[in-house]
Design a protein around this nucleic acid. Structure first.
Lengths: 370, 370
DNA sequence: CCGTTTCATGCAACCGATTGCCGCACCACT
DNA sequence: AGTGGTGCGGCAATCGGTTGCATGAAACGG
């Protein structure tokens, strides 16, 4: 605010505007503060306004693609933006608009394959659209803190990954006015939010049917944690067994870690009647496969196993794993676009996901003694 | 701003303050606007100020732990904050302070094990400290956009994961005034930033030495992309071979994908003189192992292999993988704390990382024909 | 040629914090 | 009792945008 800082650049635009600016003479702009040239600081819309000879509100309208701007004015503003290398300040935009235009992902995990791929799909789509991305991991004792955190306007739109009860718990505790999209399992209870899901039920049924068609009497199942909801993998497995009138064995649950899958695998390996195992995911398949190996059972000679997810490298196992490929990245992208629609109030876009696909490799074969 | 909205709650605090508030009578507070009770909206510091009978600036001082607040006042404000369930608005804070207090991670990848674990460590530390976390993935053609994106004040402090040239490129293009910490390989060029690294060089030397001590004449190396900088895995491998006066074979480079590792593995499998292979990471080890299998070579009978990273499940391979465990999560935590120090201007904390550790399992053994 | 509608754009308030400056009240000291 | 120092806390400006409203000019109809 030193006197020399408030030079006449501002008034030039209005008072001296000649025909070359194609602006009428009455444009005497007052609302511009003289701080336009704080050197070192990034240019603001007021600097752009000065450069273009308009008010900063008009610059705002151009930025927000308001139809109420003359094409010539718009062009002048865009040129000024370009000349100054102006970038809108996201924090200010958030404050003015009331909520950030970015997206925050709420998840209970970032490294497990399904979660990580969904996240990757979201990230890719967000980056393409120039949208900011935040992450918030929720742990079991921290649902309250998580909700507090994402309630802040700067969290923007939410994508809650509710593959597990923790995600669902967040969803339930989330105030209704906060824009959120759910990446869910099918069959999860409707909480009044847009929810998108992969058809894991069908996928599991396909995998189970594959084993039954090979001639196995039934298929055992080692489930991932928190399975059992009506639409999940376990349900599909049950569907296929029921459809084939096969016996439905008891489900073995285990944790996300390979070690617990190994334990489950040893139990199944001890039973001679077990000839086919549907594993809740590929990591579990890894533990089960090693358990079978340690018990002296050959895969697929003695026991066939099927995984779920098609993690990178599963094609290079010995034996290469038969598994179900899931389009988690596509799910993530769809969630992102839905979240943006939710946030901006636009209608929800059509979504199309690549359906799950069974990849038959080396770990499945007909049972030895038919 | 309707007349009935501007009730007298505000002035009560000043004019009618009795001894129960322990505030002197001269406290006539003027700067409070009457919008304090917009119902439905989250409470702001002005609401808290009204509740506590102070000005909103004083609330700000309490929030920022300024020493210039009397303990009694502080207590009153804290009580009001508690009563109202007030949460400071991050966007407003960012705008006022000039930069967000959160942290943004810049990385070229989010799913590869080293990157994902570092990210996980950062996330965990950020959540513990109640700090917001953003993610920005950089692709090769997008260095400029990435720098633009993170230059915005709302990105807060940066953690650039520079395990590869892309991360380094971002670092070079980043304006000097932007607070950033580098998660790097040792030996990377100093760019005037605080950089933290795991001792991969030593780790690779340990792994190579292990193979040499088993009796292998030399150790071949399949390198991860962008390896070769002075401090990396390849350098450590070279160190150990040099130290043992062993022949230094040509390095086989490959991509991040297991398939390219398989190709490299087939090349090595064709050569009878190859008895030990140091793989750039565990995924590469997986491809190489399958290639050896397909070529009819036994691991570790014919060829020993060592991986790098100790990914989950590598203990359950057949054979279980000998590998080097790296404390990526610890690296992430250290980077986070350094970033916060950088952002707040506090002195850099002491860091201590768990050194890499060789985990000997089943994939290494003495060569068959000594 | 005048009145009315439409359009573009400026005005001012607002979003919710931070921060330098200033003033008042109290205490201590002479 | 007068005076000076100190510390608490209010004042006002600021950060960089968004948005409801007002206004002037152009367009249009009769």
């Amino acid at each position: 605010m030193t006197p020399e800082a408030s030079d006449d650049r501002w008034f030039r635009a209005g008072w001296r505007s000649g025909p070359e600016l194609s602006l009428p003479d009455y444009h005497v702009i007052v609302n511009a503060s003289p701080r336009h040239a704080r050197k070192g600081a990034a240019p603001s819309i007021r600097d752009v306004a000065a450069e273009a000879g308009v008010s900063h509100q008009t610059v705002s309208r151009v930025l927000n693609e308001s139809p109420r701007v003359r094409p010539a004015t718009r062009a002048a503003v865009l040129a000024a933006i370009d000349r100054l290398g102006f970038r809108p300040n996201r924090a200010a935009r958030t404050l003015g608009f009331g909520r950030a235009s970015g997206v925050t992902v709420v998840t209970s995990n970032t490294t497990l394959y399904g979660y990580a791929c969904t996240l990757q799909g979201i990230e890719e789509a967000a980056r393409t659209d120039g949208v900011a991305l935040g992450i918030r991991v929720v742990e079991s004792a921290e649902v309250r803190q998580t909700v507090d955190y994402v309630s802040d306007p700067s969290a923007g739109g939410l994508i809650v990954i509710a593959f597990d009860p923790l995600g669902t718990a967040v969803l339930e505790a989330l105030p209704g006015h906060i824009p959120a999209i759910v990446a869910a399992e099918p069959g999860a209870p409707d909480l009044g939010r847009v929810a998108i899901a992969l058809d894991e039920r069908r996928a599991a049924a396909d995998a189970t049917r594959h084993l039954l068609e090979l001639g196995h009497r039934t298929v055992h199942h080692v489930a991932i944690p928190s399975e059992g909801r009506s639409g999940g993998r376990q349900a599909g497995w049950r569907d296929a067994l029921t459809e084939a009138r096969a016996e439905i064995p008891e489900v073995l649950g285990c944790g996300w870690d390979v070690a617990s899958a190994y334990v489950a695998g040893r139990q199944l390996a001890a039973r001679p009647d077990v000839t086919a195992i549907l594993c809740g995911n590929d990591d579990i398949a890894q533990g089960v496969r090693r358990a079978l190996y340690d018990a002296g059972k050959d895969v697929p000679g003695d026991v066939s196993i099927v995984g779920f997810d098609d993690i990178p490298g599963s094609a290079f196992w010995t034996p290469a794993l038969t598994t179900v490929r899931m389009d988690f990245a596509g799910l993530g992208r769809a969630c992102f676009h839905a979240a943006v629609a939710e946030l901006t109030g636009r209608p929800q876009p059509e979504i199309s996901l690549v359906p799950p696909r069974l990849i038959v490799r080396e770990s499945t074969a007909p049972p030895r003694h038919r």
